[in-house]
């Protein structure tokens, strides 16, 4: 455990320390104004002073991200189930699913705000639009690409569509959905923050996205830096937590060696 920590965690932390020290030296050496690049100490002091605002904002963004993530999981899998029913359904609908992946989210977000109002629901929707595709496409692949011989086996024994779905397609898709969810978990926080850029002003407590907008408008660069750090930490935590849950889920299904 300690050996693994020292191998995986210490090097990036050491690198971070070097960057922060270098950053502090550059700011001091070139006498940069604090509205352009604040010193690390100033950022830390500002973060400490605004810790309650930052904490609340992080929680609000986390709530938006988790709701968007949950919606992605539920709707992504549900739509994938529809897609898995027939090739013609996939052929006619998949291009529109790809639309979710390719459309610039900043172009759609204002529309969502117009339709759903400024506030939490719009934040959740933006997060959902950004994070649903990896889950959807992985779930479709997992449901459809089962071994054709296994399908024949089920057919020979007169399995119903329902049996093929529950005993073959769904279990086959679970690890792929989990892998998709890991990718989505990173996107979902980004989605929530982008959503708050557009819809965050409607919330009673501002999320990180709105706080970023505010601090940049007021040229409070120290706070802006602190917000960036908080967003990064939030995204990282959600990603790592999802990875942990994914491992627990797979371990239950896999135990003790599905890897052939």
């Amino acid at each position: 455990m300690i050996a693994r920590l020292s191998k995986n965690v210490l090097p990036p932390l050491a690198f971070l320390a070097i960057v922060v020290v270098g950053w502090g030296l550059v700011v001091r050496g070139f006498a940069l104004p604090s509205y352009l690049v604040p010193s690390p100490v100033a950022v830390f002091l500002e973060a400490w002073a605004s810790r309650s605002d930052l904490g609340h904002a992080s929680l609000v963004t986390l709530a938006g991200a988790l709701c968007g993530f949950g919606l992605s999981l539920v709707l992504g899998t549900a739509v994938a189930l529809v897609f898995a029913q027939a090739a013609w359904i996939r052929a006619s609908l998949f291009p529109y699913a790809i639309f979710l992946q390719t459309v610039p989210i900043v172009a759609v977000a204002p529309l969502i705000v117009i339709w759903f109002g400024a506030g939490f629901p719009s934040v959740v929707l933006v997060s959902f639009v950004l994070s649903v595709f990896p889950i959807l496409s992985n779930a479709v692949t997992g449901l459809v690409r089962v071994d054709p011989e296994l399908l024949e086996l089920f057919q020979i024994h007169n399995a119903t569509r329902w049996q093929i779905l529950t005993k073959l397609r769904l279990p086959h898709a679970v690890p792929m959905v989990v892998a998709g969810a890991k990718v989505s978990s990173g996107l979902t926080v980004i989605g929530a923050i982008v959503g708050e850029f557009f819809a965050g002003y409607g919330a009673q407590t501002p999320g990180l996205g709105y706080l970023i907008l505010q601090s940049s408008g007021q040229l409070r660069t120290e706070l802006l830096f602190a917000c960036v750090a908080a967003s990064t930490l939030l995204g990282l935590s959600v990603f790592l937590a999802t990875g942990l849950v994914a491992r627990l889920v797979l371990a239950r299904l896999d135990e003790p060696g599905r890897r052939q």
Binding site: E152, L153, I156, H157, N158, K167
Partner: peptide
């Protein structure tokens, strides 16, 4: 239940134990 089929690959479901795989046709 007219046929039992054995493929070139064992075609076992990796998420089922040996016993659960063996009785899959009966379960279906």
């Amino acid at each position: 239940h007219s046929c039992g089929f054995v493929f070139q690959s064992p075609t076992l479901l990796p998420w089922r134990t040996v016993q659960e795989n063996l009785v899959l046709p009966l379960e279906l």
